[in-house]
Design a protein around this nucleic acid. Structure first.
Lengths: 154, 154
DNA sequence: ATTGGTGCAAATCCTTTGCAATAGC
DNA sequence: GCTATTGCAAAGGATTTGCACCAAT
């Protein structure tokens, strides 16, 4: 196999089964964090998720939010985007898409251009590397920042 | 234009001219850091570069190393790799190539598979985004970690 | 009852900032 | 001489750890 399963988004309720299959537990925190992540249009930082989750689960702690987001990524229900500009972003979309990263304001937008991952996964395998995912980032200046940038920074 | 200039690595001496053209100065720190970055086979963290540079320029400070590496990236003489696993890595190779990132040990290797950036750059432009570079990371387990990983973490 | 999960506080790690001193041009 | 660059120390921000308590199975 040279590609990944990119089937459609699992239902919210599937989280319970995914967890139980691994001997892990369904908790209010996990359910609410996944729901919150999916409700969002824009990508969110762990801290933004925590702020939002607090309406429903007031005591929710930062370490729990991080642990849960990492777990969701591991379960294939979320993606983590590391841009190197401030905090990592979490993305509830699980279907294949890429990201546009503005190096000036840090904004990250989705980019829906198909990427054929097969050659990369195959070449990785030839190096003894077990590929799990391919992330493509287009870095540059977003529509707000491009005009504002001085010639020297372009 | 829908692609970038990926011409061959500039000579060390060109750094001086690149800097002067921007009204910036050639300093021993900048020259030594670039030389060190290019000498390396494996990618290096800012701190590793600092440790290496200290042999030649004992006083070199952390902020200078970070500032210089950022400058080299801006000048197109280096790339910064943000994996989200520990410190950022700097890569002195300027010709097009991708990266393999082991999520377990953090090791990053080069992957020489051609990527056609054009469709991504074009689509970015259609969104009003001014693309400057495209980064592709293949995430997974390296040859050392894949056998060691427990079934549950694979 | 078991043991996985949570919250709290604190620690750690990476990177940037402020500022006075230095050194290219 | 002008001002970019440096080093130092310290701050800042993101994420993780240790541990006691709690709760899902």
């Amino acid at each position: 196999m040279t590609t990944f399963d990119h089937s459609s988004t699992p239902a919210q309720s599937d989280l319970v089964e995914l967890l139980h299959r691994r001997g892990q537990r369904s908790t209010p925190q996990r359910n609410v964090i996944l729901r919150e992540l999916r409700r969002r249009v824009r990508h969110a930082t762990a801290d933004e998720i925590r702020a939002a989750v607090r309406d429903e689960l007031p005591g929710t702690s930062t370490p729990t939010v991080y642990a849960t987001l990492d777990l969701l990524v591991e379960l294939g229900l979320a993606r983590r985007i590391d841009t190197g500009l401030g905090a990592a972003l979490y993305d509830g979309r699980t279907d294949p898409h890429q990201h546009l990263v503005c190096r000036r304001c840090g904004r990250v937008d989705d980019l829906d251009v198909a990427l054929d991952e097969a050659p990369f996964v195959t070449a990785a395998g030839a190096n003894g590397f077990d590929a799990e995912s391919v992330e493509l980032l287009v870095c540059g200046l977003c529509s707000d920042c491009a005009p504002a940038a001085l010639p020297s920074e372009r």
